[in-house]
Nucleic acid binder design. Sequence first.
DNA 1: CGGGGCAAGTTCTCTGGAGACGCTAACTCC
DNA 2: GGAGTTAGCGTCTCCAGAGAACTTGCCCCG
Lengths: 250, 250
Amino acid sequence: MTESPVHHEPPIYRRIADSLRSQILSGELRDGDRLPGENALMSEYGIARATARQALAVLINEGLAVPRRGSGVYVRLFRPIRRHGSRRLSREQWGQGRAIWDSDTRGRAYTVDEVHIERLPSAEEIGRVLDSDEVWVRRRRYSVDGRPVQLAASHFPADLVEGTAITLPDTGPGGVYARLGDLGYSPVHFTEEVRARMPAPHESELLRLPAGNPILIVARTAYTSGGIPVELNEMTMDAAAYVLQYDFDA
Amino acid sequence: MTESPVHHEPPIYRRIADSLRSQILSGELRDGDRLPGENALMSEYGIARATARQALAVLINEGLAVPRRGSGVYVRLFRPIRRHGSRRLSREQWGQGRAIWDSDTRGRAYTVDEVHIERLPSAEEIGRVLDSDEVWVRRRRYSVDGRPVQLAASHFPADLVEGTAITLPDTGPGGVYARLGDLGYSPVHFTEEVRARMPAPHESELLRLPAGNPILIVARTAYTSGGIPVELNEMTMDAAAYVLQYDFDA
DNA sequence: CGGGGCAAGTTCTCTGGAGACGCTAACTCC
DNA sequence: GGAGTTAGCGTCTCCAGAGAACTTGCCCCG
């Protein structure tokens, strides 16, 4: 019809956000630096407060900035350390990873906050995967420096692990996978990984997250080399600020 | 405003958002349904337009709703299919997964849009991991139904794959891992998985995403059973709408 | 019956203003 | 010098209004 190919300029708030983002990603603004506040943006660009807020909201939304009420908006550049070196992973040791929390910190040990163990009738999907009517469920909460970052629920076929330390809070040296090895289920193979970014439904209390906070869901199933499913693990993680790095020494 | 603030009560826009979210997650509102629009919320709750927009923005932000200009805001419930059954994965077959796009569709074949192959001097980090000065880089773009969803860059030590089909666009039957197997590097072990949610810096053109769109970065390193690193793969995915499910038949 | 144009409905962008609340640093007092 | 208080600053929430841009369905016309 008319001149529709008018290359529309992006709206003001987006141009400001793009400018700030490029300053962050280029290194001009560093992690922890304070972004220009609402008043500064208002006077600098001659815009209304709501527009300035909108520009900052873009960066906050993207996770590049964190607002602190009464103080300002600060850069939160999250540069994950990808790896420490080239190390070979033997499959049995999976699950002994370390967590890297934010870029400037050394690896810190995962700590397990809470452990709940139950014997339950298995839900439909879990029963189908594990081929078992009853399962032992290990629920664990992991924290890094006291901040909860991960919920994990591992399901084991009841008849397989009955009477072993897997049904106890303390699984002993080497953890669950060592106990599975004691039972002859070793090495363990992992399959069917699922990644989904979803708003948190109600797990918020345990992770101390507001409802709707984006979380990363990872499901992993473990099979013995004989093809027997021995574990179904579902991890719910605060994805916005979380990087998990496996770093195997042995 | 005259009323004194109740101590810990969430703001209006958040209460509305919570209400809508619970309707979505409970199934009361289904995928594709139209949410009440700005005008409807304004009259229903007696609020200003900006407040209604703010409530809807929460859900849009969380990925539970998608706005369509001139039409409305629609529920976009993303219910990932977790798994098809219990199948054992042999490690060599990793990389032959299928993608499930949205919950109500059957698995669709990944299609590779673009393939670029280069021999390059390896960047610092890649060189350290692969222990090689030069690498062959395979860049691929994957699409599902014509929509680009994933960029992948796989790096191989140059001396290891020189002259093989790995340096060609078409790697032949079985793909890259079969060719690695031909070379005697089989089975392949994967380690050091990294997950990070980041705003897209500039890859936007290939994935047709706006800058700042959240993407999921996954890095995976492959080692032979002898501990030789043979591949460093970095995947950049549109995480907001993406679920990758590995489903191995053999 | 098909196509073009129009109008209603909806979201998007932006303006201006106001009170509440949290943080911080300067200040006062002991 | 140390501790408590206070004022200023900055973000958070919400109000009211208006034009632009886009979608959709309806109506008119050939």
